[in-house]
Design a protein around this nucleic acid. Structure first.
Lengths: 214, 214
DNA sequence: GGTGCGATGTTACTTGCGGTAACACGAGTC
DNA sequence: GACTCGTGTTACCGCAAGTAACATCGCACC
């Protein structure tokens, strides 16, 4: 029948696509975000045009690849955010989940943060703003939603939740990136310090004696 | 004399370098971070090899370019951080300074955040971690220093200050990036919301009634 | 005053990557 | 057996980074 044919084909195409993505994954894991299409094709045992038929262009492949990892990471984060414990503990466990992930697979992490920068032509549209990685945006939105659902923030609740969602994600990201590069302390210490920051310890701390001006 | 000769030459070279950087600046402002070396050379009225003699490679040029803007922005931020007002106001004014800067020159901002990603060969060292823009790192360190100087954080003061420096900068950056893309509210509202977050309002807020689980 | 020399500039090239056109083959269909 | 469609290939284009080799001007030095 026509329908069964088509489903068979689709299934086959999907399987192929998954295989290609896994090959691409291996290459990106090895070569970093600058893995070339040639290298990926070679790893998959085929040649470039097939990749282009499946994913359109490099951006498409990278987007598909990023989606997989982003989904996986977001699922872990959602689990941490849904744990039935108090807020502080939930925040700490979410931070820790994220940091553990980037610690375990730094190459993947780097790829997710700098997806498709280089290459020729392409985005002459110059999308100012929203230049940051899709992962950050998605995490920000996700967190915003959780905050808005769970925390009572009064009339401006929606705006506050979104600002905070993106802000907290950015804090986590930047601190994590810095920490991954310098390793100045243990993961647990980092988590506690960030949670302390979110818990207002900056506002609560006193001025240093002999500080300039006040 | 030998010395005066050399200084003359150096001066001339420095002037030339500055001219080249200004040309590069114009092109980057027009074409975004993907400005080609050819385009920059053309804008400066010369040809590629001269650029390479002055800056080594594309990364060198971009680094020099980024340094100028980074220095300028950091100077503004330092001024805001040094204002003789109370802490909350200082935090808000620093946030506002940063956001005003990225709002005024989004292309420059984008360039600073995504400096030299693409291109061929190069960093096979795969510097995991420290992949983020130098601007973010410098701002983080700067803020860390200010915090450590001014705020009394007890025994772990140094570590806390650095974590917070990078974390706050990341929060500012991510929120700013998102805000620049979506413009969901005024700058002043964003500033207030972020300051509220830093002032512990997340910890202080109550649970939403009927929330899932608790 | 010719002469070497270093800075400044050019043209023309190589290499490597993203992306595509054109061709080749194998399996099902009428 | 011809047709077509999915899958694959080779060979190419365009373009950008980076470089080699050559041209020119100013200028100290003998």
């Amino acid at each position: 029948m026509d329908t069964t044919q088509r489903t068979d084909q689709q299934r086959s195409a999907d399987r192929r696509r998954r295989e290609l993505l896994e090959a691409a994954d291996r290459v990106v894991l090895r070569d970093g975000p600058q893995a070339s299409m040639n290298a990926i094709a070679a790893e998959a045992g085929i040649t470039k045009p097939i990749l282009y038929r499946h994913f359109g262009d490099k951006g498409g492949l990278y987007a598909a690849l990023a989606m997989r990892h982003t989904d996986a990471l977001l699922a872990s984060l959602r689990a941490a955010l849904d744990a039935p414990v108090d807020r502080r503990e939930r925040v700490e466990s979410t931070l820790d989940t994220y940091l553990a992930a980037i610690e375990a697979r730094p190459q993947v992490y780097r790829f997710l943060m700098h997806p498709a920068e280089g290459s020729t032509g392409g985005d002459q549209g110059f999308d100012v703003g929203k230049h940051s990685a899709p992962l950050l945006r998605r995490m920000g939105e996700e967190l915003a939603q959780v905050i808005e659902e769970r925390v009572d923030l009064g009339p401006e609740s929606q705006r506050l939740a979104r600002v905070w969602g993106h802000g907290i994600v950015g804090m986590m990201h930047a601190a994590g990136d810095w920490w991954l590069g310098e390793r100045p302390c243990s993961r647990a210490e980092l988590v506690r310090s960030l949670a302390d920051l979110l818990w207002g310890r900056l506002a609560a701390a006193g001025d240093r004696v002999g500080g300039p001006g006040f």
